[in-house]
Design a protein around this nucleic acid. Structure first.
Lengths: 162, 162
DNA sequence: TGACATTGGTTTCATTTGTAACTACTTTGC
DNA sequence: GCAAAGTAGTTACAAATGAAACCAATGTCA
């Protein structure tokens, strides 16, 4: 099964194709990470992200959570709903704007956060721990620029010629 | 909205948390890339991956495609089905093992490949083009180790203590 | 003030996805 | 040669997902 060089000539070597490799890596990382919390607390990726945001920032509206975590608002909405059902969230109405509500972790939610966060950190260590700090810095730099670029490209819904 | 340092003390700074950033970047890249083919040829990510594999390697079984592209076999199966419906694939039975079949691109499929592949390449250039080659090398190194590590962790379905 | 657009958030609906069960075929061990 | 186990691929079913419609509240602007 060697790369074929077909008549027309253009062959994309997926192994060398960074977007592809990035996506594959991310999906594996995501899968591996999910096991940390999904099994233990019966919550999914979206739920964990909400908890993580609130664990870090204390109090946010659903909108803010969505923005910071790059999650679709329906996803946030549903994650908040299930977390509320599980008593992991505290919801406080905003007197000045009754459309939104301030969300934060309930004691139970905080417990979960305090239990999962270190585990996630440890897992990250196992995955990224052995790369040199120079490589890690470079990695972060690339992630930064790529994220920015891709976000710009992904946003332009109509502004692209086809 | 500044990071809170809650009582228990452990705070996970998501902005610095590599698995998280990796996943976010990948999802944006994936979104941006999808636009290249989804609109133009009415095919999805899975379909494109199948085409890309066949474009690169010529002939493969569904199993091989799944392995190389890290796709679930049902996903491959369905992608192959829709591509077949679109006359983009050629299927040849394997006389020695009637369970599997050899897949390759039909002329139409090859056309699609030859049209999408350079576009994907160009898009990749727009996203990764401006990073230095040293950074890119480092990036690849990290992707390699992380992919390996994560794959190992993700595989162990039952072998983890909880 | 009051129409109209906008926004935070939820719900509905169709599509996508993965798990598990299943079919057809092949391999293994006796 | 044959029963049992395993494998490639499909299908049925349930859960996750996103687009679009929707609701209630807010902002805008005449």
């Amino acid at each position: 099964m060697k790369p074929m060089s077909n008549k027309e000539g253009f062959v994309l070597r997926l192994e060398d194709f960074l977007p592809y490799r990035l996506v594959v890596a991310a999906s594996l990382v995501s899968q591996a990470t999910a096991r940390t919390y999904s099994t233990k607390y019966g919550i999914g990726i979206a739920e964990w992200r909400v908890i993580a945001q609130l664990g870090e920032f204390g109090t946010m509206t659903a909108k803010q959570i969505g923005e910071r975590s790059h999650m679709h608002k329906t996803k946030v909405s549903r994650a908040v709903a299930t977390l509320t059902r599980k008593k992991m969230l505290a919801k406080r109405a905003n007197r000045d704007d009754k459309r939104e509500a301030f969300l934060s972790l309930s004691p139970v939610g905080l417990e979960v956060y305090e239990s999962i966060a270190p585990a996630a950190q440890a897992l990250s260590q196992r995955m990224f721990g052995e790369v040199s700090s120079e490589d890690r810095d470079a990695f972060e730099r690339v992630l930064n620029t790529v994220t920015a670029r891709a976000a710009a490209l992904a946003d332009t819904s109509a502004e692209l010629p086809d």
